[in-house]
Design a protein around this nucleic acid. Structure first.
Lengths: 146, 146
DNA sequence: GGCATATAGTTGACTTTGTCAACTATATTT
DNA sequence: AAATATAGTTGACAAAGTCAACTATATGCC
């Protein structure tokens, strides 16, 4: 990759992470931290995940995660179900309350995205999202063989 | 924006921030935190910035920034120059050492980007970076009237 | 079977990062 | 010249994240 391209990439990163950072900051005037919201997302997304599964999905220290999950359990957001075949592992499931809480965050994030792009026309939205999907594909290809 | 587009946007955000998060994490086995590195970047970029300028550029609490700058000064990375016309403000300048330290971080980031994309062809790199620039333009347009 | 090694998750102790409000000093407004 | 605003500092604190030791169970291998 050429030096100017690297500069553009890094400049884009600063720009993009600043924006996402502001969005996250705003959402997170909710009762959940960014990482907690992400864990709720993953729990909603994949049923019966274990703590180890989550670590594979989000890059978090296992001790830290353990405490977050304990907090979630205490707040009745999740249920822990002991695995039968392996007594070390527990499957995690969002409770009804947990799902409701997740839905709230999810709706708020949707709303935020909608607001963010409210000045773009339909065709601009199309172009934007198409480009994001393409970037993702290209980057996945780039990363694959690491 | 359509619901599927919002989903794609948010999914892209998770993907992209995960990657950038990993890159940052790696760089930051250096002696500087992410925010410190960003402040060094801004100081290198704009000469004679004040603390307030930096707050305008990076979204940081002024107390927190004050301490970081004090730390930089102690480490001889910056010089503080009292403004003549307004005795409340101090202009900040990277020292030679500060510039050297910044260069190290900067080179490491460049290298990281280069490695990240080493499996992409020249034309793929072109497409990728072009799309990033386009996304930035579109998003800036979207945000402009907030 | 029985020992060595690996994995899942928990806990304690700790560091780093970030927040908030009060405060000093100077500048600006009225 | 009094009131208000701004730049930056400081103290006290809270939130986020790290690291290693530990328990319990599982797996590989002789």
């Amino acid at each position: 990759m050429k030096p100017e391209q690297i500069q553009e990439f890094r400049s884009f990163n600063r720009f993009y992470t600043d924006i996402v950072g502001l969005l996250d900051k705003h959402i997170l005037n909710s009762k959940y931290s960014l990482i907690e919201a992400r864990i709720l997302f993953e729990l909603n997304n994949g049923k019966g995940l274990t703590a180890s599964d989550i670590i594979g999905l989000v890059d978090i220290d296992k001790g830290y995660l353990s405490r977050i999950l304990k907090k979630f359990e205490k707040a009745r957001l999740i249920k822990k179900v002991d695995s039968l075949k392996d007594k070390r592992v527990v499957a995690l499931q969002l409770s009804e309350l947990g799902k409701k809480e997740f839905e709230k965050l999810d709706k708020a994030s949707d709303k935020q995205a909608e607001d963010l792009f409210k000045n773009l026309s339909e065709s601009e939205c199309n172009r934007l999202i198409t480009k994001m999907a393409e970037i993702r594909l290209l980057m996945k290809k780039g990363i694959k063989y690491e």
